[in-house]
Measured scan of single mutants.
Amino acid sequence: LGPKYVGLWDFKSRTDEELSFRAGDVFHVARKEEQWWWATLLDEAGGAVAQGYVPHNYLAERE
């Protein structure tokens, strides 16, 4: 699936296409579209919880 990303700060969605998340949440990014990335929010087991657009500057690649 490629690298995983972690949320740096809490983010509250403003549209139906955006995905709310908390700092520390883990994502798989499917598409990078300039300022907004289409991402899947993952649970602790790595299963998909939700999908939506997230601001790229709120995520960091997980080491």
Rank of each mutant, 00 (worst) to 15 (best):
G7C: 08
E17M: 13
R31Y: 13
V6H: 04
F27N: 02
G46Q: 04
E63P: 12
E44R: 08
W9G: 04
P3Q: 13
G24I: 03
D43W: 06
F21T: 00
T40S: 08
A23D: 03
K4H: 14
W38F: 13
L59K: 01
A30M: 15
G47H: 15
F21H: 00
D10Y: 07
K12V: 15
R22I: 08
W9H: 09
A30Y: 13
A45H: 14
R14C: 11
L41W: 04
Y53V: 02
L1S: 13
A60G: 08
E61R: 10
L41P: 01
G47M: 15
G2S: 12
W36Y: 12
K32A: 04
D16L: 09
K32Y: 08
K4F: 15
A50N: 07
G47D: 14
Q35R: 12
W37G: 00
R22L: 10
L1I: 12
V29I: 10
L19D: 03
T15H: 11
T40E: 09
W37N: 01
W9E: 06
P55N: 07
R31N: 08
E18C: 11
A23Q: 10
V29Q: 01
K4M: 15
H56E: 09
A23Y: 05
G46E: 07
P3R: 09
E44D: 12
K32V: 04
L19G: 01
P55H: 07
L19M: 10
A48R: 08
D25N: 07
L19N: 02
S20V: 05
A60P: 02
E17Y: 12
G52S: 00
V26C: 08
V54K: 02
G52P: 02
R62D: 13
Y5G: 00
R31F: 13
Y58S: 06
A45C: 13
S20H: 03
S20P: 04
Y53Q: 05
A50K: 10
W36E: 02
V54Q: 00
G47I: 14
F11E: 04
K32I: 05
D43Q: 05
E17L: 14
W37R: 00
A30P: 02
E17N: 14
F21D: 00
V49T: 07
L19F: 05
L1G: 12
L42E: 03
E18S: 07
A23L: 05
R31H: 10
H56R: 12
K12E: 14
V26S: 09
A60S: 10
V26T: 12
A39P: 02
S13G: 15
E34I: 08
L41T: 02
E17V: 12
V29C: 05
L8K: 10
Q51G: 03
V49Y: 06
T40K: 03
D43K: 00
L19P: 02
G46K: 04
G24Q: 03
E61N: 07
Y53N: 02
R31S: 09
G46M: 05
F11G: 02
L8P: 01
V54R: 01
Y53P: 01
W38D: 00
E61H: 09
T15A: 10
F11T: 01
E18H: 12
E18P: 00
A30G: 13
L8I: 10
F27Q: 01
F11I: 00
E44W: 06
P3N: 11
A23H: 05
F27M: 09
H28S: 10
F27K: 01
D25S: 07
Q51S: 15
W38V: 06
K4G: 07
E44T: 09
A23V: 08
W36K: 09
G52D: 01
F11K: 00
Q35Y: 15
F11A: 01
F27S: 00
W38H: 03
G24D: 03
V26R: 06
W36M: 14
G7W: 06
G47E: 15
L1N: 13
K12M: 13
V54E: 01
F11H: 07
W38P: 00
F21A: 00
P3M: 11
V6S: 02
A23T: 05
D25L: 06
S13W: 05
A30D: 14
A39K: 01
W38A: 01
K12R: 11
E44K: 10
V26M: 13
E33T: 08
K4Y: 15
R31I: 09
Y58P: 03
W36V: 07
T40H: 09
G52C: 06
R31C: 11
Y5S: 00
W37L: 05
W38Y: 13
A60I: 14
V6A: 03
A60R: 12
L1D: 13
W9R: 13
E17G: 12
V29W: 04
K32N: 06
S13H: 04
N57S: 10
A39M: 01
L41C: 05
A60M: 13
A45V: 11
V6M: 06
Y58F: 11
A60D: 06
A60E: 12
P55R: 07
H56C: 15
Q35K: 14
D43H: 03
E17I: 11
Y53I: 06
K32F: 08
E34P: 10
T40G: 01
G24A: 01
A45W: 14
A60Y: 10
W36T: 05
G46N: 06
F27P: 00
P55F: 06
D10H: 06
E33G: 14
L42H: 03
L59Q: 02
W36Q: 10
Q35V: 11
H28T: 14
L41I: 06
A39H: 02
P55G: 03
P3L: 11
W9V: 08
E33K: 07
R62M: 15
D43T: 05
D16K: 11
F21Q: 00
G2T: 13
E34Q: 11
V26P: 03
V29M: 00
D16F: 09
D25R: 01
A39N: 00
A60H: 09
A45R: 14
K4W: 14
L1P: 13
G47S: 14
L1E: 14
S20C: 06
L8S: 02
R14T: 15
L19S: 00
G7Q: 02
G46L: 06
V54I: 03
G46W: 05
S13C: 08
L1Q: 14
W36N: 06
S20W: 06
T40A: 06
L19T: 01
Q51L: 05
W37V: 06
D10V: 10
L42W: 03
S20T: 10
G46T: 05
L59T: 04
E18G: 11
P3V: 14
L8Q: 05
F11V: 02
Y5I: 00
E44S: 12
E34T: 11
K12Q: 15
P3T: 12
L19W: 04
E34N: 09
E17F: 14
W9I: 09
Q51T: 14
D16H: 11
F21G: 03
K32L: 04
A50Q: 08
D10E: 06
A50F: 05
F21V: 04
R14M: 11
A48Q: 11
P55S: 04
L8T: 02
L42C: 05
H28F: 15
A45E: 12
G7K: 01
G46Y: 05
E17W: 13
G2F: 14
L41G: 00
A50C: 08
V54A: 01
R22M: 11
G2A: 12
E18V: 14
A30E: 15
H56G: 15
W9M: 10
N57D: 12
V29F: 02
Q51F: 09
A60C: 10
G46V: 03
S20I: 04
T40F: 12
W37C: 03
E18K: 05
E44Q: 10
L41H: 01
V26Y: 11
A39T: 03
F11Q: 02
D43V: 06
R62H: 14
V49S: 06
S20R: 01
L8R: 07
F11C: 07
N57T: 10
D43R: 00
Y5W: 10
W37Y: 08
R62F: 15
F27I: 05
G52R: 03
D16V: 10
E44L: 09
E34D: 13
W38C: 07
S20Q: 04
D25C: 08
T15P: 01
R31T: 07
L42N: 01
T15F: 10
P55K: 05
V49W: 04
E18F: 12
D16R: 08
E17P: 05
H28K: 07
G52K: 05
K12A: 12
A45I: 09
G7T: 04
G7V: 07
L19Q: 02
L42S: 02
H56M: 13
Y58R: 01
K12C: 11
R22K: 15
R62K: 14
G52F: 04
K32P: 03
L42Y: 07
P3K: 13
R22S: 13
L59R: 04
D10M: 05
A23F: 03
T15Q: 10
N57I: 06
T40Y: 13
A39E: 01
H56L: 07
G7E: 01
D10L: 09
A48G: 08
V49P: 01
Y5A: 01
S20A: 05
E17H: 12
W37M: 03
E44A: 11
V54T: 00
